[in-house]
Amino acid sequence: MSYQTLQTLLDDNIYTIIINRPDKLNALNRTVIEELSAAVDEVYKSDKIKSAIITGAGEKAFVAGADISEFLQLDGTAGEALARKGQEMVFDKIENCPKPIIAAVNGFALGGGCELALACHFIIASSNAKFGQPEVNLGLIPGYGGTQRLTQLAGKNRAMQLMMTGEIISAEDAQQYGIVNKIVAPVELLNEVKKILNVINTKAPLAIAKVIACINNFDHTQQGYDFEMKKFGECFDTADAKEGAAAFLEKRKPVFSGR
Rank of each mutant, 00 (worst) to 15 (best):
P98I: 09
E70N: 09
R30G: 15
A38P: 00
S37E: 14
I53G: 00
I53A: 01
E70K: 11
Q87E: 08
A103T: 02
D75R: 11
A103P: 04
P22Q: 06
I33A: 06
G65M: 05
G79D: 07
E95T: 15
A57S: 15
P98R: 07
G79I: 08
A81K: 12
E59R: 13
C97Y: 07
K48N: 13
A64M: 07
E34S: 15
C97N: 09
D41W: 08
I102Y: 07
I33G: 00
K60D: 15
G56C: 10
S46K: 09
N26V: 09
V32P: 00
G79H: 07
R21V: 02
I94R: 00
F62Y: 13
M89Y: 14
N26F: 13
I54F: 04
L36N: 01
L28K: 00
R30E: 15
S37N: 10
I54D: 02
A27G: 12
I94Y: 05
A66Q: 09
V63Q: 01
N29T: 06
D92R: 06
V90M: 07
I49M: 04
G56T: 07
E88Y: 09
E95N: 12
N20C: 10
K24T: 14
I49E: 00
A78H: 11
T77M: 09
A39S: 14
Y44I: 06
E70P: 02
D75W: 13
N20A: 14
D23N: 14
A83F: 03
F71C: 08
S69T: 15
K50P: 05
K24N: 12
R30A: 13
A61Y: 03
K24Y: 13
P22M: 10
P100H: 09
T55R: 01
D67S: 10
P98A: 09
E35T: 07
I49P: 02
L74F: 11
P100T: 10
V63M: 09
N20F: 11
L74Q: 10
V63G: 01
L82M: 14
L72T: 12
A52K: 03
E70R: 08
F62A: 03
A81C: 04
R21W: 01
E34A: 14
F91N: 04
A52I: 03
A38G: 04
A39N: 06
G56Y: 06
I94K: 00
D47A: 14
I33L: 11
D47L: 14
P22I: 10
D92N: 11
D67F: 08
A103W: 04
R21H: 07
I102K: 01
A83E: 00
L25K: 08
K85R: 15
M89Q: 15
K48E: 14
A27P: 00
A83M: 08
G65K: 03
L36W: 02
V40I: 15
G65S: 06
I49F: 05
N26C: 11
A52W: 04
A27W: 01
A104D: 04
S51D: 06
A64V: 02
C97R: 04
F71L: 13
G56R: 04
